Amino acid sequence: MREIIFDTETTGLSPAGGDRMVEIGCVEMFNRVETGRTFHAYFNPERPMPSEAEAVHGLSDIFLSDKPRFSELVDDLLEFIADAPLIAHNASFDFGFLNHELSRCARDPICLSRMIDTLTLARTRHPGAKHSLDALCTRFGVDRSQRIKHGALLDAQLLAQVYVELTGGRQIGLGLVAEATEAATRTTVTVQPIDRPIRPARPHFPSEAETERHRQFIAAMASPLWERFLAPI
């Protein structure tokens, strides 16, 4: 099954209040395995970048000033995501901004039935624990040493690894077990005979003397337990 892991960076928290998307990063997965295909773009938000938001992702007005507007790349983005399920962390936030940008281009919104929220998955699987992307990377041993600031593509790549762990582990979709089994079935093994002398069978029956000593030992027992269950003759 094809799935898209994605993340966004924005000028703030409220698209209804005028905030805009400034970056999107998408990672393609097939059967829980990254294919290597990605979509990554920066956008000119056509408004100033608040210092609080810049401190989070490091995207300045100067950096974004020559970047395309969302409307210029919307067709490429929609072609990439196609009809695949879309996975994000705190997905309602990213869906809100994505659909807001689509509405500005007079495009249909992405149906929320396609949304998979890894934050919800994490809360269900590990109630009471920390559920930030950093915390989940630490929990599952995902290397986040390159994450100095938030970045949409890097965060999507990290989230892809976290998503695999949240949904069953790294072997899902790899088919390694089936392939290994099939390969083992096809393998011909030649067994070389070992040249060594064969010992005669060892006698396991007691000798007459051993049998007599055992009979005398039993007869000397006072009120043995098994006599309670023996029917009188």
Score class of each variant (00 low, 15 high):
Thr11Ser: 06
Ser14Ala: 07
Gly18Asp: 08
Asp19Asn: 10
Asp19Cys: 05
Val22Leu: 04
Val22Asn: 00
Glu23Tyr: 00
Val27Tyr: 04
Val27Glu: 06
Glu28Thr: 10
Glu34Val: 13
Gly36Arg: 01
Ala41Glu: 13
Phe43Ala: 01
Pro45Asn: 02
Glu46Val: 05
Arg47Val: 05
Met49Gly: 02
Val56Ile: 15
Asp61Ser: 14
Ile62Arg: 13
Ser65Gln: 11
Ser65Ala: 14
Asp66Met: 10
Pro68Asp: 06
Phe70Gly: 01
Ala84Phe: 07
Leu86Cys: 07
Ile87Glu: 03
His89Trp: 07
Asn90His: 14
Ala91Lys: 04
Ala91Leu: 04
Glu101Ala: 05
Arg104Lys: 11
Arg107Trp: 01
Pro109Ala: 14
Cys111Glu: 09
Leu112Arg: 13
Met115Ser: 10
Leu119Tyr: 09
Thr120Val: 14
Thr124Met: 12
Arg125Leu: 13
Arg125Ser: 12
Ala129Arg: 10
Ala129Lys: 11
His131Phe: 10
Ser132Asp: 05
Leu133Trp: 05
Leu133Cys: 11
Leu136Gln: 09
Phe140Asp: 04
Phe140Tyr: 15
Phe140Thr: 06
Val142His: 06
Ser145Val: 10
Ser145Lys: 11
Ile148Tyr: 05
Ile148Glu: 15
Lys149Arg: 15
Lys149Ile: 03
His150Gln: 08
Ala156Thr: 09
Val164Asp: 07
Val164Thr: 13
Glu165Ser: 12
Gly169Arg: 02
Arg170Ala: 12
Gly173Val: 03
Ala178Lys: 14
Arg186Lys: 15
Arg186Ala: 15
Ala201Leu: 15
Arg202Leu: 12
Pro203Cys: 09
Phe205Gly: 13
Glu212Lys: 15
Phe217Thr: 11
Pro232Tyr: 08
